[in-house]
Structure formats: C-alpha cells, structure tokens
Amino acid sequence: MIPELEKFFRVNKLPHIWCPGCGNGIITRCLVEAISQLDIDYDKTIVISGIGCSSRAPGYMNFDTLHTTHGRALAFATGVKLANPELTVFVITGDGDATAIGGNHFIHAARRNIDLNVILYNNNIYGMTGGQGSPLTPTGHFSTTTPYGSVDRNFDITKLAIAAGATYVARGTAFHDKLLTDCIKKGVENKGFSLIEAITMCPISYGRKNNFATPANMLEWQKNNAINVKAAQKLPPEKIAGKFLIGELHNEPYAEYTAEYDKLIAKYQEGAK
C-alpha cells in the first residue's frame, strides 16, 4: 500500500473480502487519495454504505463508518448530514444498492441537493449474492438471472442523477484512476449532491459470463470504450456511438439542503429576530 494512504485504512482489517481481480480496491484507493488531497477534518468525515460488495469498503476505512441496510445508505446519510451539517459525508454504494432497491432514496437525495458525496461502484452485477442482473447490467448481457441475455433496459445512472437534481455528476473508471480521483475531489468541493459513477469490474460474476477472459481484459475494455467528455465534444457522433463518456458530466450549483434548513432555523428559532 502507498504509505501515505495507510492512515486512512484500518490496516488490521485487511486483506479485504473482494475477489482477485476485483476493481473495488482501486476505486477505494482513489477515494482515500481524494480525501488525502482535500482540506477536510478526518474526525468529521463519515463513510456510509448499503449492502453489497462495494458496501463492505467502509469497514476497512479509518473514519466513523456506517454499514446500513440494503439500498438505504442515502436515507441514513441524509439523517447524519442534516443532524450535523459540519460533517463531510461519503456514501459508498453499488449499482444494485443505489439504483434498484435504493432507487427512490437516490432520486430524492438528488432532488434535495443535500451535500452528500456518492461514489457508485458500478460493476454491472449483484456480486455479493453471486452474480444476478442489476438495473445497470446492459441489455443482452448475461448473469445468473439473465441466462438468455438481459431483456431489461439498463439505466444511465448519471442521466438519472442529473434529471433528479444532482448538482455535480461525473464518471470515472478503475482504469482511469487519476481522473476518478479528480472527480471525487470535485464532488466533495461541490456543496450539494454529487454523484461519481465509478466503473469497476467484477471478473468472477460478470466477466466470466460476458466474454472477459481475465480482469485485464475488463480494464482494457474500459480503456477502449471510455471517451473523455472534453474529447467527445470534438468527435463526430459515429466515433462516440456505443462508447461511454467519462469526466465531469454536470456541474450546476444550486442551494444546498442543510444550509437552507439552517437559514430557516435562523429565521424561526425562538429568540431569533
């Protein structure tokens, strides 16, 4: 491990439970790297997760950490942040956790623009339960519950977040780790709801069923199919078709929920003018 990042981990809880070749370790490293580069109080930094592979990450991280129920991380995080707006709150969630069982909490947290920093580890699959299809499993792809290829249409979770009112939305991948770290940093700097979709890889449950022979093939796929949003502006549509954008997709500040609530208190609290 990078020595200067060690203090952010509960080293005695490692090694982690993730499979060999899993991208979650890279994403988590990007997260703590971003934290290390930010001017925030580590005692007042909270990491909250739901249920699933990615949601085990907070257990390894040396902060106040909260491993909640399936899909509910954002609802718990809303309580933590609203009760004490001084805290910097990260939410680690997966594609199943955030967009299926937690979909309602996701859009409403975005709607309120509450200052939560959501890192969505997207491995396109329910990994912890052994590889079932999720709302982010691409149409036609295989999983243990889509043995003939998924009939369901998949979400573009970044577009959903923007439509729901998130003020900072970005995408990175395990391959584009520097970019991902940067996006996380910018997400924290945004006073409002930030979504960073982190494309990770699950070689065991997703890769093997979808023609990725090795974890390296999956990283290669990320490398070959991601187009930086800035570069994409100069490309003709046919060069973008079938690929996905990475980088900052949306950055539009709006009044933040807990700050607005504090204004309301200042106005109506007994003894206030």
């Binding site: 909250i48 106040d64 909260l66 909640t68 129920t69 509910r72 609802a75 718990f76 995080a77 809303t78 309580g79 933590v80 942040k81 609203l82 009760a83 004490n84 805290l87 309602n104 909490h105 859009i107 409403h108």
Partner: peptide, 19 residues
C-alpha cells in the same frame, strides 16, 4: 424532514441519532 417513504424515515432518524 419529510422523507420519500417510511423506510427512509426510519433510516434517517437512525443516521441522526448516530450524531
């Protein structure tokens, strides 16, 4: 806070209680 549903309401108070 009026939450989006009952599940979220219960989760939300637990988050607040932790602070």
């Amino acid at each position: 806070i009026q939450m989006e549903d009952e599940i979220a309401s219960m989760a939300c108070i637990l988050g607040a209680s932790l602070t």
